[in-house]
Design a protein around this nucleic acid. Structure first.
Lengths: 194, 194
DNA sequence: TGCAAAACGGAGGCACCCTCCGTATAAATT
DNA sequence: AATTTATACGGAGGGTGCCTCCGTTTTGCA
């Protein structure tokens, strides 16, 4: 019988992986729409699984937030890499920032949920933050090298501008407003070929 | 029949006023201890009234927060005036700041509760804030005139220091820690008679 | 003192939280 | 392919909180 560790680790079941993924997708949707206090039973129903399955995968609300958050960071970092390859530098930066806005809706719940228990999840947070800054840094560097944007802003500055704009998230429809604000900002960032 | 306005306004019932006051006191205690999501039924029970009575006086959770908040601002402004009369200037300032810390526990729930619905309660907020700054300004002016503290800080600065320190409110027992921090800060503020 | 307006209190219906366990199913074994 | 067995599934159920509604009690006024 072949096994690498002393513990007999069976291959994880396919349905388990499927359900985990379905739950994460559903959680993203539900929390984006309903805020951090949205019902976990609604998440389970949206995912099409039982409430028991949800709790087995994510024992606490915060565990669920963290998993969603990490997944989104992964996706955004990957998206940055793909955009950098496929699009002109400025356009890549623009599209990536737009994608960011969609994420903040969830991060909102994240922040509220993580703050009280701070300390347990600091590492996750710091790491994600660093990766995000690195990703935006690469996009900006490319645009600067192409002579498309100013070179006197740091990645942190752009990040702060983005998050600051999102701080007005209150009424319905804030995402559209922030996208417009962000486009104005990008217009200011751009070097025009006059 | 004598009445001042066209509407026949009967004198408010004594029990109503009593219960309202009991509810506000209970709400302060419960929210301080349990945070903004504390149970309203616990508030009613602590106050010794039925849940129906609570909802009649404060139809929504936010209405309750606002009432508690306003009451605390009133009390603190009044306390500032009394301390200014009865205590030496520096001691008055110190005791008032300590009292402030007790309030933040409730304001925490306040902020979380007010933010989403911003706009409906802006006026209340701005007014309270101004009154608080005026109160601390008077205490500081007295201490400056007596030569007890430095004169190069504005009321806003001290307020910001206080709130910044309170931002670490997470674990149990944060109030004690903040009181110690605040005393250190006050020690720095003080002009020593060397 | 009598009476009607106003306030009281808690039962009841609903939603959500989380646990527990009988049933179903996928991986391992033969 | 059939059997075994570890693992995952789903939802009923017990508990708590939210808020409404209405019969009962209290209070101000005449």
């Amino acid at each position: 019988m072949e096994q690498e560790s002393e513990k007999a680790t069976r291959k994880p079941r396919a349905d388990s992986l499927r359900n985990r993924e379905k739950l994460l997708a559903a959680a993203h949707d539900v929390f984006s729409a309903g805020g951090p206090d949205a019902s976990l039973e609604k998440v389970a129903k949206t995912a099409g699984v039982g409430i028991g399955t949800l709790y087995r995968h994510f024992p606490t609300r915060e565990a669920m937030f963290q998993a969603v958050y990490k997944r989104e960071v992964d996706q955004l970092v990957e998206l940055a890499a793909r955009l950098a390859e496929e699009k002109p530098p400025f356009e890549a930066l623009r599209q990536w920032l737009h994608a960011q806005i969609g994420m903040v809706a969830t991060k909102k719940g994240m922040l509220a949920a993580l703050t009280p228990a701070a300390g347990s999840s600091d590492a996750l947070y710091a790491d994600s933050s660093a990766r995000m800054l690195a990703a935006i840094g690469r996009l900006m560097a490319a645009a600067i090298e192409a002579g498309e944007i100013r070179d006197d802003l740091a990645p942190e500055d752009v990040m702060r501008a983005l998050l600051g704009m999102c701080y007005t998230r209150e009424q319905a429809g804030w995402q559209e407003k922030v996208i417009r604000l962000m486009d104005v900002f990008l217009d200011g960032l751009r070097i025009r070929g006059d």
